[in-house]
Amino acid sequence: MTNTTDTALRSLLSDVLSLAPARAAALTADSGLFGALPELDSMAVAGLLTEIEDRFDIVIDDDEVDGDMLGTYGDLLSYITRKLGQA
């Protein structure tokens, strides 16, 4: 389950941020996202969240979007894994 989510999330980040597949594959749990990737401005974050909702079939509240959720790749992956667990 988690491995599938991990693969799907890497592919989604690669699509939304135009990251080369090698760069997406090299992301670790500590890799910085929001604030660290120049591609990730608020419009891109909005696009990313919408795409996450579509592909993982979850609903993200605006209130949940903050540094804890988007700070690193690991943060985002554990957020989505948690949401999927609740579904």
């Binding site: 608020s42 974050v45 909005a46 919408t50 979007v65």
Partner: peptide, 12 residues
């Protein structure tokens, strides 16, 4: 969906 994404960008 289009509107939601635009609203979200503004909120962020």
């Amino acid at each position: 969906s289009i509107l939601r994404q635009l609203l979200r960008a503004r909120v962020l």
